[in-house]
């Protein structure tokens, strides 16, 4: 238990870490209204990234009732996998997705088959403890290999490119791309869940594991595919995070909390709700930061608490099972 104490401490401390929000994306400031509009717009676009953090988390919980505490650290791991890929091959971070996504998906499949499937059962506690331990291991392994230095991926000119959308407002191409990818990921998962045989297998297994097995579904394999899919989304989120802001081995748990909050705000089991949850946290953080830079994270958490107090089931709940 003694080893858990510093880890919990780290969890609490890292939640106060500031994400690299880039204010003032407008090229000209024509008034107070435009600034506020801009703030909200940036918040919405940031929300796309949070929705991606949340989508993988939501997917895993939905299919196998596993709360993946290591989710945030897996996002950071994906960022480092991208870092190594970019430095080794000398390619653009966005191109590195071609490698990082399959690598993380394969890792997810193996992780589930070798480790996490053994923790699943009637009790929710073993997977919680094992993924907590995994979180500690990933953080320390990254610290060992990459040191605590902040790193960032450089995506080149696209990072500073922006589009004028009139009225003195401009949006960065990269945040826009990030939001478009988030919408595409959510739409893709929605399609996969409700229109494909794999999605049918996910939902059937989620409904009734023993009967799904009687219908010829190998739960161990279905769960591993779900984890592979989750880590494919994690890979995308990790690369976008690494291009957007500095990262170091300790920032995982805070990403986990943003993801959790987006899932809860949206309502468990609702993918589009997850996007809405991400956007709400993103906007709240942006508004908080605008009022006072120190309120950035606090505002996101307060928005989460307000939703939790007024609508504990989330905004778009979907009753499962």
């Amino acid at each position: 238990m003694a080893a858990l104490v510093p880890a919990i401490h780290a969890l609490l401390v890292t939640t106060t870490w500031m994400p690299g929000i880039k204010p003032g994306m407008t090229t000209e400031r024509t008034g107070c209204d435009v600034e506020w509009l801009n703030t909200i717009l940036q918040g919405v676009l940031l929300g796309g990234l949070y929705a991606m953090f949340a989508a993988g988390l939501s997917l895993i919980f939905g299919v196998m009732r596993l709360v993946n505490i290591a989710h945030g650290d897996l996002i950071v791991l994906a960022a480092y996998v991208a870092l190594v890929t970019v430095e080794t091959l000398g390619i653009n971070p966005l191109t590195s997705l071609v490698i990082v996504v399959p690598v993380m998906a394969a890792l997810g499949y193996i992780l589930q088959r070798v480790l996490l499937n053994r923790t699943l059962g009637d009790d929710l506690l073993p997977p919680l403890l094992v993924t907590f331990g995994l979180s500690v291991i990933i953080q320390n392994a990254l610290l060992q290999f990459f040191t605590a230095d902040s790193r960032k991926l450089n995506a080149g000119d696209i990072e500073i490119a922006s589009i004028q959308i009139g009225g003195g407002l401009a949006v960065g191409v990269l945040p826009l791309l990030q939001f478009a990818l988030a919408v595409a990921v959510i739409a893709g998962l929605q399609w996969l869940f409700y229109r494909t045989a794999l999605g049918r297998a996910f939902r059937a297994t989620s409904d009734d594991q023993p009967v799904a097995q009687l219908m010829g579904l190998n739960n161990a394999h279905v769960f591993a595919l779900a984890m592979a899919l989750s880590l494919a989304v994690v890979a995308l989120a990790g690369v976008l995070l690494a291009v957007r802001a500095n990262f170091d081995p300790s920032i995982g748990p805070a990403r986990l909390i943003f993801g959790f909050e987006a899932v809860i705000i949206g309502g468990l089991g609702s993918l589009w709700g997850t996007l809405a949850g991400g956007v709400i946290i993103g906007v709240a953080q942006a508004i908080g930061a605008k009022l006072d830079p120190g309120w950035n994270l606090l505002a996101g958490h307060i928005a989460f608490l307000i939703v939790l107090a007024l609508r504990p089931q989330g905004l778009f709940p979907k009753v499962q099972g």
Partner: peptide, 19 residues
């Protein structure tokens, strides 16, 4: 019976036939 509650009638049948 133990049907899959979140699946439609046809989806239940298709899960049976997925092998």
């Amino acid at each position: 019976r133990r049907l899959f509650p979140s699946l439609s009638v046809e989806e239940n049948l298709l899960v049976g036939g997925q092998l």
